[in-house]
Design a protein around this nucleic acid. Structure first.
Lengths: 213, 213, 213, 213
DNA sequence: GATGAATGAGTATTCATTCAT
DNA sequence: AATGAATGAATACTCATTCAT
């Protein structure tokens, strides 16, 4: 019954010492348990069982449940960010880069369902997670505003509004939505939120998505 | 520890006296416990203790924790809606009415902190709650789109995006934001999301808020 | 959901005062709840619900759960005994009468499944029930022994052994056994237990069952 | 109140030490609690208290109450069977062996009162328990029938009738009956049930019991 | 460092019983 | 007599955490 979960991080820690490997395995375990049972219903026992490790071992690596969950969420976020940054660096800071980063974030987050579930659950529950995303978003926002492409001042509320649209998009895809459609519509919505007219926004989306494919 | 909570619904209970009063008191209790401890950490024990009734009494009125929480969320929602509808009916269906409804929703939700907390927590956790809001929002959206004031097609995703912005606004106010500023900015953001330019949006907001004050 | 149970005793109390009718209805309720959930799992709440009577009403008629269950078992037993005695009085005291009484007991007990279930559960749990059967059995046993037809002395253990065979027979029929076969085999077994050879026993059974049909 | 119970299985526990010892101790605890309070009234709390382990420990060893009770009943049964088989193997399969097995079963079951109580309660409640006895009984029954010593065909109903007589005998001894008398009378009754005349049965009993003493 | 048995506080839920109406 | 809301003790089961091996 103990469905052995996928390895997201474990193998990468293979070369290292046993300690690192066990830790990575526990993160993997947490990720799949969260995807199956939700954040609040994830128990340490379920994670160790899914990981195939003794119950007590958990406390050699994490302080408590929250420590584990935050670590897992950040690990996932960093993993997603690899792909996002690879795509984003094709553009200079600005609205195009912001759009491609947003789109890539959705796509990466849902490419492994477990990642998406953990991310959606962790955002809004652990401030550390959101704090880790904001800075890059802010840089693009400022550059775009300076360039005059975006007519809305970059504020913390605006950051969070964009974040909320991204989270919503991920959720929608996870619950059966079509990823390409939702990604495009969300990109379009973000641009409207930034003050572009629907026509301008459509143009921006078309331009950026052409590069991405 | 047993801080006796405010009475939101208890006193209003009419008719068959005792039963209705106890039920309303439990709803009140749930609302204040959720505000203090969060939705997931709200235990039945905490609610009955806060309400000042015996543990078993709970089960004379609700099936389980979820039944209670959903009932409380809906009660709060309906309560908020009284104020929202009073304000909204000054306008015909359309974008103005949508803006005033949105603004009023934020203001009512934060007017009693407990209401806001419960609402934010319950939305996205219990579909019943969201389902109760959508229809009116959709009516305004359609009317505005038909009138050509809004250039974006009303879709379910759009509904949810507006909902997400509202939830975010409530959260921000509850965590110390200034209600008037955040309400205005959120109204403005919703109008941008609907395709208005920042200037048009500013004009709409100014027009609507003048009526409201 | 509250499947309205059959009326076993209620209607018979119709002419009488309301009090008697409610009491009878509760007995009916108990009988059907026991059949569905077993003796130990029968709760007062389930009985009042099945009876369609208020919870508190129960205590106007019975002291507690045990009082109810014993009363119900005895009521069932007395009901069964009507049929048994009608059949038994065709014979003088003796082994034939004992056989027909035994056979009739099985048949009556299973003719209404609920009766059988209650009886099987109550025997061996409430001594009062068994005490109510023993005297007549003992009379037949003594007469048969005096007449020399039965070569085994009537003792309390023998009484109980016969009772055990009857209970077993009822259980077997209730769990799908064929009533005529099990009744005959049990009658045969009782006669063997009383010291008859298989052949004598077969003859006795044939003789008695002919009268019964 | 926490009468520390006897150790029936605990001390015998070997091998991986602690775990096995705790499990055995819980079985011991269950056995004595059942003897004191009856099967249905045996709570997990009472068992852990009697065993002297923490409440939660229970769930490291058993799934639930039923798991515990069945395990305890089977442990008792196996324990009893050691003595029964030792005595039975002095005879070849057949009616003599059946009689000595039956007699020994009664005697072993009542030699430790707690064993008898558990056994009587568990039979008829947990089919697993009865299923564990039937095969050997059936083997003797078949052999005796083949040898012509028993003139009644071995059927499932017959199995159960013998079982019922054994259960009754144990109960009677536990409630004050004299073990030697009840054992003899039960053996005699079983032989009558199998078709022997009272005289044959008396002879068989005398022959078998001589060996046993 | 890993193990896994033991711990015990915490939580939901049931139900016999009381009592004011 | 009947009602049914309220009561609170009892019970099963979970799970984070500790600790000896």
């Amino acid at each position: 019954m103990t469905t052995r979960q996928q390895h997201y991080f474990t193998e990468r820690a293979e070369g290292h010492a046993k300690r690192a490997r066990t830790r990575a395995a526990l993160l993997d375990g947490a990720i799949s348990v969260v995807a199956r049972h939700g954040l609040e219903s994830t128990t340490i026992q379920a994670v160790t069982r899914a990981t195939g490790v003794a119950h007590g071992t958990f406390y050699n690596h994490f302080d408590d449940r929250e420590d584990l969950l935050v670590s897992a969420a950040i690990a996932v976020l960093d993993e997603i960010n690899v792909g996002v940054q690879a795509a984003a660096q094709r553009f200079p800071p600005g609205v195009d880069r912001l759009v491609i980063a947003a789109a890539k974030t959705i796509m990466e987050a849902v490419s492994i369902r477990e990642f998406g579930h953990l991310l959606v659950a962790a955002v809004g529950r652990f401030p550390q997670v959101t704090d880790r995303i904001r800075p890059k978003l802010r840089a693009d926002l400022r550059a775009a505003h300076a360039a005059g492409v975006v007519r809305v001042a970059p504020t913390r509320l605006l950051d969070e509004q964009i974040g909320a649209l991204l989270g919503l998009a991920i959720q929608r895809v996870l619950s059966g939505g079509q990823v390409s459609r939702i990604t495009r519509e969300t990109a379009h919505a973000i641009l409207r939120l930034l003050g572009q007219t629907p026509d301008e926004a459509a143009e921006t989306v078309a331009r950026v998505f052409k590069v991405m494919s």
